[in-house]
Simulated assay, not measured.
Amino acid sequence: MRDNFPSIQLRARKGWLAGRDGIVISFFIQRTPADFAPAVWRALQTYLRAIPDGTLGWYPSDDGDMAPLDDAGWKHLRQCLLEPPWNGLRSIELMESPSEAGGYHFEYYGRQLGDPILEDPISSVSFTFPTEYLREHGASHLQSLALQLGYELPFNFGYASFAIVSPQGLFSSGDWKLTEALLARYPGLDAYNNRELSAVIGTHALAPAWLTFLGQPLLGQLGGIDALRNALHFPEVSLLPMDGDRVLVTLDEWPDPIDTQTKAIPPQYRALARLMEPFLFQYKGEELLPFQHDTNQWLRRFL
């Protein structure tokens, strides 16, 4: 599995890198940001200790320009998370490059529950790694790191997956035909956009992934850990109970792009998808926008 990952380079029209191959770890949290912002800060420190020193060097400043992540920048971001008036109720994006997608990104979107402007808001936090990090350190290391992050965060849903790594969903700036071809060939490839999804998914699930984190109320709606055990009788699957009535479901030893030109979708992915289907996020409405219709189909790719 170590050499089973396609190399992805999505270029925008002017040539800058809009997305690349890597791993994303995402969590969705239905709580008031002030209640869990310290946990986000601790999880960020865990992430920073795991990646090369100085990798995250830039962030969008309050005026919209890219600013270097120096001591003043860190002080400002810490205040945004932990101190009034924000107390975590804002977005924070840390990037490897000021001008294109790198392999390492941190994205946090603190949402006010019940925000009348958004459809069904929930806070989210994500951490990314280039594929080279996975190859160098191995899947068990990344699984352990994802578990450390998950223990810090009071998630209701989360996952880790092979992915198109691209901050703010900027992969859409690349050749969309190439992106569509990649997603059609590799159902194990995630094309995440937490800025968009955290405004609408509420406590719904997304598609199963290599690592799938289930918290409340979702785990209870699925029937609890016993229902998972009954549905996932596969040698590749492991279930790890976590505190707070949560569980980590691991579907394979390594993240799998699932190249449909060489193999079928593994049955454990389909089994978990069927169990999660009633609680899967889908855009609703009689006249969906094209991207909403495509997202609905893509989230159902394992069914």
Rank of each mutant, 00 (worst) to 15 (best):
L17Y: 07
H105K: 02
P208W: 05
T46Q: 11
A139D: 10
A39D: 14
Y186N: 06
L178I: 11
F127H: 04
P52H: 09
L142M: 14
L10S: 06
Q261Y: 01
E277F: 09
R20T: 12
L69E: 08
T128N: 09
Q30H: 15
W74N: 04
R49D: 15
Q221P: 00
L248Y: 01
D243E: 14
L82T: 01
V200A: 08
W298T: 10
S91M: 07
P235V: 05
L94Q: 04
F281M: 06
R270A: 14
L218Y: 04
K263A: 15
E196N: 06
A139G: 10
G244R: 03
I122S: 15
W176L: 15
D120V: 01
G215H: 03
D21C: 10
G202C: 07
E180L: 11
C80Y: 01
L197A: 09
Y47K: 03
Y283K: 06
L149I: 14
D243V: 04
Q45D: 14
L251N: 02
G22H: 08
I117N: 11
D3H: 14
G103W: 09
R185P: 03
D71M: 10
D65C: 03
G88K: 01
W176S: 13
L272S: 06
Q297R: 15
S124W: 05
D65V: 07
P290T: 08
P84C: 08
L251H: 03
K177R: 13
L170E: 13
L239C: 05
A72M: 07
S173H: 11
Y47M: 07
L10K: 02
D71R: 12
A146Q: 08
H293C: 01
Q30I: 00
E132K: 09
L228P: 01
H137D: 00
Y186G: 02
Q221K: 13
L69H: 05
H293N: 09
L288F: 11
